[in-house]
Amino acid sequence: MADAVNRRPPMVVFVASGFVLLWLLIAAFPFAWTVWGSFKVQADFFSRDTWWHAILGTNTTRVTGDAFTGGGYYGAWVLTGFWRAALSTAIVTVFVTVISLTFGTLGGYALARSTHRYRFVILVAALFFRAMPEITVVSGYLYPFFALNIWGYLPTAIIVLVALNQPFTLWMMYSFFQGIPRDLDESALVDGCTRFQAFRLAIVPVMWPGVITTGLFSFLLAYNDFTVTGLVLNENNQTMVPKISSYLGQIQAQGNVMYAVAAVVSVAIPIFLLVMFFQRYLVSGLTAGAVKG
């Protein structure tokens, strides 16, 4: 009987499958196309005459003697110093993730266990901060940063990203800690632990699923950021995303769009890997906020 709900007329299954396959195509084709095209020359990547050029690499073969070329990647990573941007991105994302998780875990725990009314004020204020476009706050930094002479450096961008990350991290960790029974740390308190010992001994061992999930999103926020890194970092410290946007200005004029295409694919690959390995955590993170409402 239970399967009556699941029984579907073949027609419905057919239409639904078709729709799902269409969505798969819409979601995945742009990436497949760009990754494939990044190994061609520009005349193939943008070939108006016939799309077989892009698929077969006709012009690429004519120019380089092979249907595939790593020219775009060489140009981006070696000639225009994309490796330095990748290094900056690595530094920024690692520090932002670690620091925002530390701050957010402590804060989220306090919010989940406190019984005072002011915790709602903090939570609602955090939600309002989350709603403000980042750039409105960034426009408030720039002038003080110039005045203090700290504009342009990686630590500056890291601190700013950590702060902008806090509202989200606090909410995620808050709702995660709400799901951990209070008895766990309260029994430790009864046994004579201080609050911090209770947190370290009773909570830390069980909090890792929540920390990993929140950490993934903190990582993505830092990795995907353009607003802060684009305005706060100077040219030598640029991370990958502002570096790509700088390609759009200069390189298009020089006719080397393929550097930008190669850089774009290089930025996308870590995201593919992240989704591949952490799919379960990402889905649980996306739905965690929803269940809490």
Partner: peptide, 12 residues
């Protein structure tokens, strides 16, 4: 394949 368009860097 649905997660990728959503989590990809917006600029990219």
């Amino acid at each position: 394949f649905s997660l990728v368009p959503m989590l990809i860097t917006p600029l990219v």
